[in-house]
Each structure stands twice: as C-alpha cells, then as structure tokens.
C-alpha cells in the first residue's frame, strides 16, 4: 500500500516536472525584470540611431519621464527638424504634440515617431507586466525563456518570447510576434551598465526585423535615474512643457 502511494506521489512529481513552470512564477519574474530595467518613476535620455543597408544613418536624442506602469512622456532634443516634438502615453492612449501646430493629436502604438524599426510601442514602452501575462516559462541555453501573451488585443505585439538572464533577471533578447505568429522584430539587450543608485541594466537595445532586411535601429540609454514626478507632468496640457523638467 505504502509502495503504491509512494509510486503515485513519484509519478505526480514527474508529471509536475515535465510541465513548464506555472505562469504565476513567470509573472513574478516579469515584474522583477520590469523593476530591474527601470525604477517606478524616473527620467532618462536616449539616443536613437537608425541604420540603413547602404550604411547611412539618422540619429535622434530624446528626454523621457516615466511614472508607474503605464505613464510615459518624451520630447525630442535633436535633430533640429524634430526638436520640441513630444509624445505622451497613458496606457493604450498615445498623443503627439508638434510645436507651433498646437494641440496634441492621437496616434497609435504601431506608428513610429522616428521612422525606422522602433515604433511608438518600443520608444514609449510601458512595463512588460502591464501589457503581457506570462503563459509559460522554460529553461533554454542557460537562460529563462518567458512566453508572454498580450493582455488585450490593443497591445502592439500579440506575443513575445523573452530570454532572461536567470541571475541578473535582465532580458537578453526579445522576439516580437503578430497574432498570425509572424516574427515582427527582435530586440537585443547589450552593454550592461551601472547607472548608479543600484540601477544596473543594459545601456543598448538593438533591433532588427525580417520585414526590413538590412535595416537596424539602436537605442542608447544615458543618465537614467530615479526621480519623483508630479502626476500633472503626464497630462495633455503639460505636453508642450515636458522639456522644462530637464
């Protein structure tokens, strides 16, 4: 009887081991990845570089502030043709403010304010855990691989495969898929850097896309630091003044 019971317990244990880790663990890891990538409220500068197959490139510098899981505002500092253009994202709502033209207009996360492979969802990225649930987690080549599924149909990518360094809990690579299962782009996280105050994260994110062969976009993070920000900084009326927070 005891033998039977033990063998049943053993069988159950084997079955449990065969099934990938439950999504609760994955969601908890995803939240840790989010916090390791940035504090709850912070400011940062980013340089965006678009590279074309012929070697030509275009660069943009933007200043951004983020608070909570789903509020982010950015303003272009250079080049001169883009200076002052500002974007605000509150959850799924994104607005673009063009200086002199006046009022902000609503835009979508699939569009790109810079051109190139990064779209607004990448540039105005929310916390991954705000937009995705972890459906499955597995060990692969010394990394954790999280299978993430969008919480709603309005998220830019239907699903993500995120490879995470299991010690540092930082992403190494993310593949972004459309609902059809087609690979849209791949993000590569590089150059882990100490930004101070315990914030250690990749300073470079590269992306390429099978849809745009030979093109590459790079985002370089500079001066990322924790900052207390007023809620009013994330409003349409404040959008023209985001640069004053620098």
């Amino acid at each position: 009887m005891i033998k039977k019971l033990l063998s049943m317990i053993l069988m159950c244990m084997c079955l449990c081991l065969a099934v990938p880790a439950c999504s609760d663990d994955g969601d908890a890891i995803l939240q840790k990845v989010d916090r390791n990538l940035n504090p709850e409220a912070f400011e940062m500068y980013r340089k965006l570089i678009n590279l074309e197959p012929d070697g030509s490139k275009k660069e943009f510098i933007m200043y951004s502030i983020k608070k909570g899981r789903d509020r982010i505002a950015s303003v272009f500092i250079s080049p001169a043709s883009e200076k002052g253009r500002a974007t605000l994202r509150l959850g799924e709502n994104i607005w673009l403010y063009i200086p002199n033209v006046g009022k902000p207009i609503r835009i979508t996360s699939l569009q790109s304010v810079t051109g190139g492979i990064f779209n607004n969802a990448d540039i105005m990225r929310l916390d991954y855990s705000a937009e995705y649930n972890c459906e499955k987690m597995e060990q692969q080549e010394g990394l954790l691989m999280l299978h993430l599924k969008a919480k709603t149909g309005s998220v830019a990518y239907d699903s993500l495969k995120m490879w995470v360094d299991d010690k540092k809990l930082l992403p190494d690579k993310i593949e972004c898929f459309a609902s059809s299962g087609m690979l849209i782009k791949t993000l590569y996280f590089k150059k882990i850097t100490d930004f101070g105050n315990g914030l250690v994260r990749p300073a470079v994110v590269e992306t390429d896309s099978p849809l745009h062969k030979g093109y590459k976009s790079i985002m370089v993070f500079v001066r990322m630091k924790k900052r207390d920000l007023p809620d009013e900084a994330f409003t349409l009326n404040f959008l023209s003044r985001v640069e004053n927070l620098r």
Partner: peptide, 27 residues
C-alpha cells in the same frame, strides 16, 4: 558603404555633451 553596413559607433561622452541643457535656444 561596404564597411559601414550594419556597423555603428557611439561615444557616451559625446552624447553627454549633446544632452547638456542650455538656458537659451535658437533654431
């Protein structure tokens, strides 16, 4: 073009210079 393809360089000190805020702006 041949060697430039897919390569990029950036200088953090240069970016720091570019993001330095001035009290005035002309453009």
């Amino acid at each position: 073009h041949a060697f430039g393809q897919g390569e990029y360089k950036f200088d953090l000190a240069e970016i720091e210079k570019e993001i330095k805020k001035k009290p005035y702006h002309i453009g």
